[in-house]
Every structure is written in structure tokens, then in C-alpha cells.
Computed example of a mutant assay.
Amino acid sequence: MKAEAGIVLDAALFAAYEAASSPHSIRALTSDLEAFDLWCRRQGLAALPATSSQVAAYLQARAGEGAKPASLSRYKASLAKIHQLLGLADPTKAELVKLTLAAHRRGVGSAQAQARPLRFKGAVKDVARDQPHGLNVRALLEASGEDLTGLRDRALLSVAYDTGLRASELVAITVEHILEALDPEARLLEIPRSKGDQDGEGATAYLSPRSVHAITAWCKAAGITQGPLFRRVQVRRYKARGAIKPRAIETISGREAWDLGKLKGKPAVAARAEYTVGEKPLHPGAIGPIWRAMVVRAFEAGALPDLMRDDLARVLKGISAHSTRVGLNQDLFASGEDLAGIMDALRWKSPRMPLAYNRNLAAEQGAAGRLMAKLG
């Protein structure tokens, strides 16, 4: 990173920061600093120490590229952190930087795009009595195949919905984290660490009998007895081949390579697939694509009759790894759970996010929504 001379690196402080931070936080900081350094080089500026006007100009440039207010706030926080670690004056505290962010938020709004929820029965009012509608988890589970990929994806989605885990937390599950529960058909999931639990106090989530059955089927088929639960499945597919008739020896030209098989012929070979289960866990970035692939499979199988093909692209665009967390959050809200119960179930430290996830649902099921429904 381009810096002015005289900046002293405190190795012990950096080591302590790395030990106290999650790998995700370190990757985010590194990525943000590399982007800032590249911008500064293009402007002919030293990245460190940065001035307040330099930071403000950078944030304006990123905003012009389409960065959202939440992303700009993260860039600002990363620049503040590196200056703090190097013992430099923090340029992000300047009023110019604060006003730059405030002006952008005022201009575009600060609401973040919400992932499309994956609710168990879809967009229903009564989660207990209503039939599944539209995009729903139950249809995706039922449409999953019985091959290794299908078994893994069914278990993955079922666990994700039960627990509301984030992608990084979901792929960190090991067989050893699954504990006995009072209900012999259910299990408990030990969560050693999560995004909201950087100190590693740990938490426990409930795994339904549905998820237990799916996990058991996946582990048995994949031969998993310990270590990472959700792993990559590599598939190699071989095309079918028709039978090859045997040839008479006099028909084989002297120019051909001698092959005894030509005299015997070859039987027909059916199409087949070979599966290899990896040793390492899935990457967090694989979760969103898996959900989208499950939606496509369910649609093609006719398991989502309420969706038209024209709807599919729009639906897929909103699906992300966070969709199950949003969906469980909304289903808890729709079932009548209070905010405290939802925060406990999803391990929220603040009510801000669960309330944000329920904003659209609250408008529909709130006082005005109920009145308009009665009026027709």
C-alpha cells in the first residue's frame, strides 16, 4: 500500500487485531484497503495517511459507481481502522466525511435491498393452516432429488430454515455439533461462534425431525461420520453408448490398429454419473447459487405451480444465502411470536434487523392491512 515515509508498523498490535477478528472481517478490511490504495495511485496520492478531503472524494467516487450507503459506511470504517492500527489521526472523523455520507443517504435513501424470503409455505397469512403458495421451502425440499447432490441440498436447506444461520455459520457445521435433544426425533445444533458472537460464547439451535431425517440420509449416502457436514459434491456424467457389433477378422484393414475388442464387439453402456464427496466444507459463496438451483429444479419439476416462467428470472434475482434467514424471521412474525422471541431464536443482538426484515410483512398484516382486507 502506497504510504508516506515515517509510518511505523506495530507488529504486536496487528497480530492482536488478527487474533481478535474473524477471517471475514480481515478479508473485508484487506479488500477495502486494496481498493482505496488503487484509487489513490490513480490520483497520484499516497493512501496513508489519508486526508479528510481525500476520503470524502473517494467515497463520492464509489457512490458514483453505484455503491450503496451501507457499503460506503463500511469503506469509511475500514479506513478508520487502518489509521487507528497505525497510530495515525483518523480522517473519517472530520465533518466533511460525515456530511458526504449524509448527503448520499439523503439523495438515494439508506434502505438496503432485502433478500427475497424463503418462507416454509410461501407468502401465507396463517403459517399453520394455509396451503403452500408461490415460492416455498416445502416445495424445494420435496423436489430435491435422491442422488448425492439432492440429498445434500435437501439437508442443507432444511437446516438453514430451521436455524436461520448465515452462510458462513451454515458451512461451519460439523457432525460433532449435532447433539441429542429431549425429543428423540429431533436434535440440537451447537453453534460455537457466529457473526454476533465474536467472543465465542456459543448458542444452540433446534433441528426438527425433518432436518434430522434429511441429515441422516445425506450422511449415510455420502459416508460422512465426522468433520464438516455440508461438503462439495463433484459429479462426472457419462453419456450412453450403443452396442458395437463384432467384426469378422477379414474386414479389419491392415492399416487399423490391432484390437481384439473389434472381433468381440462391445455391449451398450447406459448413461451414468459418478459422485465424489469432498473432505472440506462448502464455501459460503456457494449457498446462494444452491438455493437458486433448487428453485429452478422445483419449477422444472412442476412443484411451484403458482409461478409462471416469466416470474422465474425475477424470483431468482432476489434469492441469496440470506433468504432462509429472512424467511424464518417472517414466519416467526406471522405465527405470532414477539420480538424478544424472534431475537432469541435468530440470535439477534439488536431489534433493528428483525424489524427491518418484517417491515413489508408488518405493513400487510398491520392495522391498515387488516382493515383493507375486510373492506375488500
Rank of each mutant, 00 (worst) to 15 (best):
K2S: 15
A5K: 09
V8A: 13
D10F: 04
A11P: 03
A20N: 15
P23M: 06
E34Q: 13
C40W: 03
C40Y: 03
R41E: 14
A46N: 12
L48V: 02
P49Y: 06
T51R: 09
V55K: 01
Y58A: 05
Y58F: 15
Q60L: 15
E65Y: 05
K68Q: 13
S71G: 11
L72I: 12
L79F: 02
A80R: 14
Q84E: 14
L86C: 14
G87K: 10
K93R: 13
E95P: 00
V97I: 07
L101E: 08
A102R: 15
A103K: 15
H104S: 01
V108N: 05
A111M: 06
A113G: 12
Q114R: 15
A115C: 07
L118K: 02
F120V: 08
V127P: 12
N136G: 04
V137I: 13
A139W: 00
L140D: 01
E142S: 11
E142P: 00
R154L: 05
L156V: 03
S158T: 13
R166Q: 12
S168G: 09
L170R: 06
I173Y: 08
E176W: 08
L179F: 10
A186N: 05
R187N: 09
R187C: 11
R193A: 11
G196T: 15
D197F: 11
E201I: 09
E201Y: 10
Y206Q: 06
Y206E: 03
Y206G: 01
S211P: 07
V212N: 00
H213L: 14
A214H: 09
A217I: 06
K220Y: 03
A222T: 05
G223Q: 07
T225G: 15
T225K: 14
G227S: 10
Y238H: 13
R241C: 03
R241L: 11
P246S: 07
S253V: 09
E256A: 12
A257Q: 12
G261F: 00
K262A: 08
G265L: 07
A273M: 10
P281L: 07
L282N: 04
H283L: 12
I287H: 09
A301M: 02
A303F: 10
A303H: 11
L316G: 06
L316N: 07
G327F: 03
Q330S: 07
D331A: 02
L332D: 11
D338P: 03
L346P: 03
R347F: 02
A362H: 11
G366Q: 10
A367L: 13
